[in-house]
């Protein structure tokens, strides 16, 4: 099967910090790819480059064979690549329902979008359906600023999915969420995405989540890819164990609760730095 998303030799540095070098990735349709790596390994930079937020210094990005390297986030989105954010990017002063309505309205790409009312029956129904799919319907009337973190994360992802993208990039969908909620959120997201047949790339720190949801894993280390393959293989890979999951191994059994607690602390630190 031909890759729908392909990057060739991506390079990016911020001052003296190298965030990416020689990044070659090819993603096939309907794959669910996990991206792992320590803090500062270049995972978010990768997503930022693919979605046009950051321009690579060198290298090319192809979507269905078309060069999208120089495109803006808007253009990339309109081609069918959506993303979610580590820190949810929602319309904080609007309700959950209105957030989705606005996203749905934008997705219509209607020439008369300056005239046709947003609160139309079909859009209201779509918004309700989307909220149900992501299990946030209970919060429909809540202002986004007041939402619990987990719900806000789900809303962020739901807004990205409204475009019915071919590829969805999720930047740490479970960061900042309590350990108990993580699986619940991932279950919700993954079943919603399965229903829409989306190709998914997701950045994740928690190896249990990677093991459960990813078919394939790409491991980043200091701006390079050190492993790319089937999930079990990559997780068993020596360098990956050493550089990416090393801490978890030293912390003892990765199934044990305290280790998971450590993981949360580490993720929060990165979230603060964003």
């Amino acid at each position: 099967m031909a890759a729908i998303l392909e990057t060739k030799g991506l390079e990016k540095s911020f001052g003296s910090v190298t965030a990416a070098v020689g990044i070659d990735v090819a993603v096939d349709k309907h794959e669910v790819v996990g991206i792992i790596g320590a803090n500062g390994a270049g995972k978010t930079t990768f997503i930022n480059m693919v979605t046009g937020f950051v321009k690579p210094d060198r290298g090319r990005i192809f979507f269905h064979g078309r060069d999208i390297t120089a495109l803006s986030p808007r253009a990339v989105t309109n081609l069918g690549i959506s993303r979610s954010f580590q820190i949810p990017q929602v319309f904080t002063s609007a309700s959950v329902a209105d957030n989705l309505l606005i996203a749905l309205g934008a997705a219509e790409r209607d020439r008369f979008s300056f005239w046709r009312p947003l609160r139309r029956k079909n859009l209201l129904e779509s918004a309700a359906g989307q909220m149900k799919l992501f299990q946030i319907a209970d919060f429909a009337d809540h202002t986004a600023a007041t939402l619990p973190q987990g719900i806000r994360k789900l809303l962020d992802i739901a807004m990205a999915v409204v475009r019915r993208p071919e590829i969805l990039l999720l930047d740490e969908p479970t960061s900042g969420v309590s350990a108990e909620e993580k699986f619940q959120i991932m279950d919700t997201v993954m079943s919603a995405l399965k229903a829409q047949e989306v190709t998914v790339l997701f950045v994740e720190h928690d190896m249990e989540i990677i093991a459960r949801y990813a078919q394939r894993v790409i491991a980043f280390y200091e701006g390079t890819i050190i492993a790319d393959g089937a999930t079990e293989e990559v997780l068993a890979h020596e360098q990956v164990r050493k550089y990416v999951i090393g801490e978890d191994l030293r912390g003892g059994d990765s199934q044990a609760a305290p280790a998971r607690g450590n993981g949360v602390v580490r993720i929060d630190k990165e979230a603060g730095r964003a």
Partner: peptide, 17 residues
Amino acid sequence: HMSIGIRDNEIRVEYLG
């Protein structure tokens, strides 16, 4: 309605295409 979107979060608006 895009007004409120732009006021609250321009990045999201751009990522809505």
